[in-house]
Simulated scan of single mutants.
Amino acid sequence: MGGIDLKFETVLYEKSEGIARIILNRPEVLNAINSKMLMELAEAFRVAGRDEDVKVVILTGAGKAFSSGMDFSLLEGLGKMGLNELYEATRFAQGIYSQLESLEKPVIAAINGPALGGGLELALVCDLRIASENAIFGLPEVAVGIVPDLAGCQRLPRIVGLGKAKELVMTARIIDAREAEKIGLVNRVVPLDKLEEEVLTTAKMITMNSSLAILLSKKILNLSFDVDMETLLNYTALAQRICVQNEDVPGKVRAYVGRLKAGK
Rank of each mutant, 00 (worst) to 15 (best):
A165Q: 04
K15F: 12
R259G: 08
D248R: 03
A239K: 02
R26E: 04
E43S: 09
L74Q: 13
L12P: 01
P148L: 04
E14R: 15
L162Q: 12
E197N: 10
K36Q: 13
N134A: 10
I174Y: 08
A165Y: 08
I23A: 02
I206Q: 00
L86M: 15
A89V: 11
A143R: 13
E133V: 12
R158K: 14
P191L: 11
E101R: 13
A177R: 05
G2V: 14
I108E: 00
L83K: 11
T236R: 10
S132Q: 05
G95L: 07
N112G: 15
C153Y: 07
G77H: 06
G117V: 06
I206L: 14
I214Y: 02
I130N: 01
K219C: 00
L59V: 03
A262G: 14
Q99T: 04
K252T: 12
A123M: 02
R178A: 11
F225S: 14
K194T: 04
N34T: 00
S211L: 06
C126S: 04
K64E: 15
A89Q: 10
F225A: 14
F92S: 12
G263Y: 15
D176M: 06
F8T: 00
G163C: 05
Y13W: 12
V47Y: 12
E179D: 12
G184I: 01
K64Y: 15
L150I: 07
F45M: 06
L168A: 09
Q245H: 07
A42V: 02
A110V: 02
S132E: 11
Q99S: 14
L100C: 04
M205D: 11
V56T: 04
